[in-house]
Each structure stands twice: as C-alpha cells, then as structure tokens.
Amino acid sequence: MAHHKLSVRQYMILGLVSVCTPLGDSCLSRGMAHLPPITLSHLVSLIAAVFTPWIVLGIALLIGYFASYLTALSWADLTFVMPAAGLGNVILALLSRFWLHEAISMERWAGIVLVTVGVGFVTQGPSLTERPPAEAPAEEEQPELEEQMR
C-alpha cells in the first residue's frame, strides 16, 4: 500500500536527515580545527583525533544521519528523499552564519531561497510511487509458488 501523506514521525525522520549532516560536518570541522596539522607520517594522531569530544559527536551525528536516511528510503522514493535532504545545505549555511560567524554572500542567500522552495515543492507531493498490485513484493506469492512446486 502506498503512503501518499507522511505521518508526523516520518516528517521528523526527514528532519533528522536534514539536520544531522550539517551538524555532524560542523562538529567535525570544529574538532579538526582545534588539532595540530596531521601528516601521513603521524597517522597515530589521526586515530587519537577520533576520540576527541567534537569528533565523537560529529561521528555520532553522521551515523544518525545514515540511519535516518536509510529509514526514509524504506518508505519514500529516492526522488522524494534527495531534494528534501537538500535542506541540510540551507541549515549548514545558516549555522556557518550564526554559529561560526561567517559572511553569507547574495549568491548564497539566493541558493537558500531556491533550495527551500524546491523542498517545499517536493514535500507537498506524494512520497511513494504507487505500484499496481501485480508489482507487489514477491514474498506474498512465494507460499503459492512453493505449493505448486510440490
């Protein structure tokens, strides 16, 4: 059965997909900025970097992103999830403006508006392609096939 409209819980999972990536990237960036330059001859320091608080938080958030992304793909189309996840780029730009105090050019503000309009557009439509009954998962037909084989 196709889900045309998403539940609040499913919107929250899509929100997690969008939020976890920019937050995770920002944490990794902040964590790496506090470390001295790492060279190939000192790879042990790279392993040590994994256990610093910002990097641990960044990795945890990126694991959270992947788990929520996989969950979203299990009940929504790829062409629905991908543009919706694009909202993460807007959050990253806003984080860099208000948390890291970086300047945002007019070009980037235009990008923020375009991505927001695009996400608003796709989330108003159905989340999953409706399949005719003939294309339903083969699991339901398996018992009948097994009986025929016997």
Partner: peptide, 8 residues
Amino acid sequence: AAVLVCIG
C-alpha cells in the same frame, strides 16, 4: 524540485 535544489 530537483532542478531548483540543484541550482540552489
């Protein structure tokens, strides 16, 4: 949506 997000 794909084209808008792509340009954005």
